[in-house]
Nucleic acid binder design. Structure first.
Length: 844
RNA sequence: GCCCGGAUGGCGGAAUCGGUAGACGCAGCGGACUUAAAAUCCGCUGUCCCGUGAGGGGCGUGCCGGUUCGAGUCCGGCUCCGGGCACCA
């Protein structure tokens, strides 16, 4: 039995005392900026969280041993709603709750053997940090990138605050799950839409980001190419502009639909006989949540007015429709029911005409060509659904000047004509909307603005920052934002006229805090500026960023946006904050549910006939993400007390490829423990000489582990180390053993430090260097080559390395066994795959 | 609905280029040590068939088909599972 759990605290203490991870950012060296996404200090960490940090620490230790000047800081995303809710529940204040959690989590990091440069620690809830949030806000305000505007926004009735678009999932609050309501409110926004094109184009430069994340961002930004086209409306005396991605189908636009919110609606229906009914309907639609609006199905009202299709010159009816979104495009669409499924459904419901203007390029089955009678009658087949073709397999018909052009060409040509005739222009539209940053909550960065009755909106002067969040607020419950009841905070004098004024009581979305924190780590104590431009340009972009896929859109998009604004202000020279991104997968574990769907603690579960029971009640087992609420977390403390942190580290990295979801298995842990035990026990039997076989294996392992760490293939890196350890067997050579310890150090730092010092060496983490593989010594002396006859494996031959074609075939035809398969047949072909196998093709 | 990703033993997973499928680990079986248990160590372990045995043979990477001397890997067509977006015109 080895003393792994005893030696770990010793080394953790030594690393802390020696401040091994502290780095002078002004010192020379080849820099490397490693970063794990800073966590929300929610309390205890479980082994699922551990994966993220263990992985980062392994990479950090590896690069240190390669001699890189590596910065590996850590901090706390310390503002946010859970602290407030905990404060209400425990009748305390968010601050002590948050700080206690930070202390607890720091201890856990240390117990995992994770090395952070704590001299650079930051916490976003401290005025030394959030004053720069406020400073950043003022810079954006100056440039018109922060503005107050009235818009339909997402309101969470449970959390009593507005939410960003990105925080609404399936019509519900991402945090608490309450159904989100639409409200028309005046709020603070950041103008991220102004950067939509650059945020989209920039994705192409991110070679080392997962394709999946780039794709998610691309879809979220939602760039669409098309055209804005004006349709004259005689009743208005002016045109209504629509946006379409399919201007080639304009000859098929048989009606127009406006969002009920469209600004021209009031005028259009002013003299409508049923005006009141329509207005009631509009109010009803506007009061629906996005989810309700969609679930209601397609509904509309005819305005009684017509528009002129600029190409067919026909009068087409203008309808209102609940399926047209006010915030996208122009809030008005030209409807082409033949070629858009939504328009098709709407047309079917209200008996509106359908005209086919696209046909399959080569007569598709079931589609007879439309008639030629002026081309204005509905096309031949009664369509059962819209007929959408976006590529060369469709051609325009019934479309005058673009007839017979394939779709992509037709789009190009019709835009030219639209522009020539002054009907509109080619246009790009984005799905992305501005970032709503106001929160009606207490525990966040105060927005540094003042409302003055005489001067209007007045920014707090920079020299008055920070606007401190007052700590003496009562935490009684859900009665709105406690800040608005804090008179000393709210009542201020106007910085411009000196008269009485009111302070903004909204706080910022905490995603503002995390949108630039990676810049602060380089100079975290600088109270004169947000960061040092020269040092930031030296250390950033972050070379390796590690965190969960759940931030694929929110945090990473905001950080890319803010980084660009700082670039445009002239504070940094780069536009992308993170060069390499890695998203680790979650750890899952079986949880147990009773008949009512409540989670049951594993300690209450009894197994009978391989089925889980609680008493007589049969439970269902479900493998889900590890989380407190599902009662399926594995706390690291007990695990570490029994097997040591090194065991948890090795097991966590060995369990599965790190980007994949991985199922935790308590039995599996012992495999890692046994492996480390074998390494430990080998120490007593070291030999002085190394056999050629072991030398070869050693160099192969160095090569394999190195390349696998660089590619984040930790599971196979560890399996290579297990192979080496198995090969060392009873007679481990000292040379190979020392190499094994070095290669193992990023994964199991404590045991390797201990053994390294027992061998008489000084501090592995500080002084040892990563071994280099000697290619010549990796080579085999002889090579075993598989021999196939007609593709079937028929034997093996052994030839001296390196094998060449002639020698290999000589050996093959000298082999008696193989001759049996070839005898009496005609040789057709000889195939030689260097180093691996040969194949002889014979006939007869 | 649209867009991605995946499917390999009882389980987690290996297999840079198309070249001996199942590395490494778990679980299981057998054995050693032990009064015994734990721990540790050794051997076996995809599946079916033939053989007392050494050994030999067939099948096998979700399904169907194709390319190739050769396919887990490439191509075409499916099925199922997971994820993202979702009335975005």
């Amino acid at each position: 039995m080895y003393r792994l759990t005893e030696i770990e605290p010793k080394w953790q203490q030594r690393w802390a005392e020696a401040r091994v991870a502290e780095i002078d950012v002004t010192a020379p060296g080849r820099k490397l900026y490693m970063l794990n996404m800073f966590p929300y200090p929610s309390g205890d960490l479980h082994v699922g969280h551990g994966r993220n940090y263990i992985l980062g620490d392994a990479v950090y230790r590896y690069f240190r041993m390669r001699g890189r000047a590596a910065l590996n800081p850590m901090g706390w995303d310390a503002f946010g709603l859970p602290a407030e809710n905990a404060a209400i529940k425990n009748r305390t204040h968010p601050r002590p709750w948050t700080l206690a959690n930070i202390e607890r989590m720091k201890k856990q990091f240390a117990r995992w053997g994770i090395l952070y440069d704590w001299s650079k620690e930051i916490a976003s809830c401290e005025p030394e940090y959030y004053r720069w949030n406020q400073w950043l806000f003022l810079q954006l305000y100056k440039r018109g990138l922060a503005y107050r505007g009235t818009a339909p926004v997402n309101w969470c009735p449970q959390d009593q605050t507005v939410l960003a678009n990105e925080q609404v999932v399936d019509g519900r609050c991402e945090r608490c799950g309450a159904l989100v309501e639409q409200r028309e409110l005046s709020q603070w926004f950041f103008k991220i839409t102004e950067y939509a094109d650059r945020l989209d184009a920039g994705l192409d430069t991110l070679e080392h980001w997962p394709e999946k994340v780039k794709l998610m961002q691309r879809n979220w930004i939602g760039r669409s190419l098309g055209a804005d086209v004006d349709f004259q409306v005689p009743a208005l005396g002016k045109p209504i502009r629509v946006f379409t991605t399919r201007p080639d189908t304009i000859f098929g636009a048989t009606f127009m639909v406006l969002a009920p919110e469209h600004p021209d609606v009031a005028t259009l229906i002013a003299d409508h006989p049923d005006r009141e009914e329509i207005e009631q309907w509009i109010t009803g639609v506007r009061n629906q949540s996005a989810l309700e609006r969609q679930e209601a199905g397609k509904e509309g009202r005819f305005t009684g007015k017509n528009a002129i299709n600029p190409f067919t010159n026909e009068e087409i009816p203008i309808w209102l429709g609940n399926f047209v979104l006010p915030q996208y495009g122009t809030g008005a669409i030209m409807s082409v029911p033949a070629h858009d499924q939504r328009d098709f459904e709407f047309a079917g419901q209200y008996g509106l005409p359908i005209r086919v203007v696209i046909a399959p390029a080569s007569g598709a089955a079931g589609f007879s060509p439309p008639n030629e009678a002026g081309g204005l009658k509905p096309a031949a087949p009664p369509l059962t659904e819209a007929f959408t073709i976006k590529d060369d397999s469709g051609v325009a018909i019934n479309s005058g000047p673009i007839d017979n052009l394939p779709v992509p060409k037709a789009i190009e040509r019709i835009i030219e004509i639209i522009e020539e005739r002054g009907l509109g222009k080619g246009a790009v539209r984005y799905r992305l909307r501005d970032w709503l940053i106001s929160r009606q909550r207490y525990w966040g960065t105060p927005i540094p603005m003042i409302y003055c009755d005489r001067c209007g909106l007045v920014p707090v002067p920079e020299e008055q920052l920070p606007v401190r969040l007052p700590l003496d607020v009562p935490f009684t419950g859900r009665e709105g934002n406690p800040l608005s009841k804090h008179d000393a905070f709210v009542n201020v004098s106007c910085p411009q006229c000196g008269g009485g004024a009111r302070r903004e009581t909204d706080t910022m979305d905490t995603f503002v805090d995390s949108s630039w924190y990676f810049l602060r780590f380089v100079t975290p104590r600088d109270d004169a500026k947000i960061f040092d431009t020269e040092l930031a340009n030296r250390w950033l972009p972050v070379d390796q960023y590690i965190g969960g896929i759940e931030h694929a859109i929110l945090h990473l998009l905001y950080a890319r946006f803010i980084t660009r604004t700082l670039h445009d202000i002239g504070l940094i020279s780069f536009e992308e904050p993170f060069t390499r991104l890695f998203n680790q997968g979650v750890i899952t574990k079986e949880g147990y549910k009773d008949a009512r769907g409540s989670w049951v603690s594993p300690s209450e579960v009894q197994w009978r006939d391989d089925k889980p029971y609680r008493g007589d009640e049969l439970l269902t087992a479900e493998v889900t993400k590890m989380s407190k609420s599902r009662l399926n977390v594995v706390p690291p403390d007990e695990l570490i007390a029994r097997y040591g942190a090194d065991t948890e580290r090795v097991y966590t990295l060995f369990i599965a490829p790190p980007e994949k979801e991985a199922a935790w298995s308590d039995e599996g842990v012992v495999g890692a423990y046994r492996f480390l035990g074998r390494v430990w026990n080998m120490f007593d039997r070291l030999q002085d000489t190394t056999s050629p076989d072991i030398t070869r294996k050693m160099h192969q392992t160095i090569d394999a582990v190195t390349s696998r760490i660089e590619r984040f293939e930790f599971n196979t890196a560890i399996s290579a180390l297990m192979e080496l350890s198995n090969a060392l067997g009873d007679a481990p050579s000292r040379e190979a053993y020392e190499t094994l310890l070095k290669l193992l150090h990023p994964f199991a730092p404590h045991i390797t430090e201990e053994l390294w010092s027992m061998l008489g060496n000084e501090g592995m983490v500080l002084t040892s260097q990563w071994p280099v593989a000697d290619r010549a010594l990796m080579q085999e002396e002889t090579v075993v080559i598989a021999v196939q006859v007609n593709g079937k494996l028929r034997g093996q031959v052994e030839v001296p390395a390196p094998p060449d074609e002639q020698r290999v075939f000589e050996a093959v035809f000298a082999n008696e066994k193989i001759q049996n398969w070839v005898a009496g047949k005609e040789l057709v072909k000889k195939i030689y795959v260097p180093g691996k196998l040969v194949n002889v093709v014979v006939k007869g």
